[in-house]
Simulated scan of single mutants.
Amino acid sequence: MSKSLKVILCSLFLMEMLTAAPLYAQHILPSDPAATTETRFLYGNLQQMAQTKVIFGHQDDLAYGVGWVNEKGRSDVKSVTGSYPGVYGWDMGRLELDHPNNLDGVPFTAIISHVKEVYNRGGINTFSWHFNDPVTDSTAWSKPLNTVKQIIPGGSHHEAYVKYLDKFAVFASQLKGPKGEMIPVIFRPFHEHTGSWFWWGNKECSPEDFIALWRFTVDYLRNTKNIHHLLIAYSAADYATEKDYLERYPGDNYVDIIGFDAYMQKDAAHFTKDLNNRYEILEKVAQEHHKIPALTETGYVLIPDPQWWTNVLLPAITKYKTAYVLTWRNWKTEHYFAPYPGQASEEDFKKFYADPRIIFQDKLKPSIYSKIWTP
């Protein structure tokens, strides 16, 4: 695409955004000044939707489910509701090791196909990355000290980390739509950083080193590898105050979406209280920094409460501005987070799906990447 054509397209984009969303006119562009046109439209549409709607998402939805693997067109969510989810999560773990499959056994070639399929019908893709420690080669769940310091610029293993990013850039460059356009992706690096179970956790590195790593990662992908179809998500684990949440925040020029991961592990009252506390902080930060809020991971393993979707999750995510909510994967009968036919919460999930505030794939269209979506 010529430079002049890009300028024209961006001008048209701005005109449409200003007309459709005057309240958000000052904050309609993503943090990457060179973001592709499709990425800008997705960003603007997520800003719009978050005001009144919540898009439902599911990790690895098309790749496998309870009792099946790699069956074309199949989805546990679709089997229950008749619609695919609107957001689809994929993980890049093992890409850095040149493995053919990710850490959940999904071939990377299949992920590319799924991403294209999702994009073509107007769905949204998001990537997490449980990647190995570049210093020790231990898994993401290892907790060595000083890995982050060793892989930021000037560190002894900086080049090893750069090679990881090079591989990610090669993968990301293969995500092209039918006209050769780059497919926008929400990239969620170093997630749950306020916890201490990954090598990039809050006890494994200083806030300064974490921020340096984040900024280098984004700058390298944008400026060196020329990757401009990513929306960057800052995704915390637990936090009690705004200070806790922002301690490792890399700055508005490096973030588009802010969120947190929260799973129900005790009783519903405890979970609801926790969500309310974190959401109140998130909504304040989102407003002040003009970022898109999301519940970037959630779920209740095995979903034993048959009314969990409408009695617990729905009230929480619709009380606050939430662009999307992503439930974790359906791995096997002992480990799943979305219902499948015959599961105890199946009927309640259908009610959740039917709520007018909730968006599944059947309410999203490919035009989410080319024009402004109106609620």
Rank of each mutant, 00 (worst) to 15 (best):
F210P: 00
P250G: 03
N253K: 11
I152H: 11
N101C: 11
L18W: 15
K53S: 03
F171S: 03
Y64Q: 08
L326G: 01
G180N: 01
E192D: 15
E38S: 09
D348M: 06
L246G: 01
C205H: 02
D104S: 00
E346P: 06
G44A: 15
I186L: 04
I8S: 10
G155T: 09
E204W: 05
I258N: 02
R329W: 02
A34R: 10
A236N: 05
P100I: 02
Y369S: 09
T322G: 08
T109Q: 15
T147G: 11
D91P: 03
P339L: 06
W200L: 05
L9E: 12
H157S: 13
P315Q: 13
T296A: 10
L23G: 14
P375D: 15
M182R: 13
I124N: 06
T217L: 02
T322M: 02
G57K: 09
G82Q: 02
E71L: 13
D91G: 07
A169F: 07
H130Y: 14
A354E: 14
E181Q: 14
Q265T: 14
A338N: 05
N120V: 03
F337G: 01
L221F: 01
A316I: 10
H193P: 01
E16C: 07
T19Y: 15
I303D: 08
V218N: 00
D267V: 04
Q47S: 11
Y119V: 03
R74A: 13
D91E: 07
A323T: 02
L95K: 07
Y340W: 12
I183C: 00
V87C: 04
Q174C: 00
Y340L: 02
G82I: 05
F190S: 05
T272N: 07
N276R: 13
H228G: 04
A237V: 00
N70S: 10
M1S: 13
Y161F: 15
I8D: 10
K284M: 07
G342Y: 14
V255Q: 07
E247P: 08
Y164R: 13
M182Y: 14
K273Q: 14
E288A: 12
E192T: 06
Q51P: 14
D238Q: 11
L97Q: 15
W197A: 07
L103A: 03
Q26C: 11
G86K: 01
D256R: 07
N146A: 10
Q343G: 09
L221H: 03
P144S: 12
Q51W: 04
P134R: 01
G177P: 09
L23P: 04
